[in-house]
């Protein structure tokens, strides 16, 4: 297989995976196949999986040595974002329960 074919296939695989990961949660909500907490967690997991698919297949981020800088940057962003976003939810949620 040439480089070109391999790369094209990579995009197609990514597209297929992402489409599946989209179809499932929409179906779950549309037909009410799950409820409440389970559904919320399922949607969250599928979304994270799909984001990983986008990063891997469309943005070509991988664990190879050469691109460590980018990976570090992403992980660092995720760390800070987690601190900020979960901190916000924690603080504002705590305040809401005490109103």
């Amino acid at each position: 297989m040439t480089d070109r074919q391999r790369e094209t296939r990579m995009y197609l695989v990514g597209f297929g995976l992402a489409l599946t990961l989209t179809l499932v949660p929409f179906a779950l909500v549309h037909w009410g196949l799950m409820q409440g907490r389970t559904l919320a967690i399922t949607i969250a997991v599928l979304a994270v999986a799909q984001i990983a698919v986008h990063l891997r297949f469309f943005l070509h981020i991988d664990l190879s040595r050469q691109k460590r800088e980018d990976l570090q940057l992403i992980l660092f962003t995720v760390l800070l974002l987690a601190i900020m976003a979960f901190g916000t939810l924690w603080i504002m949620g705590n305040l809401a329960t005490r109103m």
Binding site: D3, R6, E7, L59, H60, I61, Q66, K67, D70
Partner: peptide
């Protein structure tokens, strides 16, 4: 992808 990757994407 072959070597020589310099940046994301």
């Amino acid at each position: 992808m072959s070597g020589g990757n310099l940046h994301p994407g």
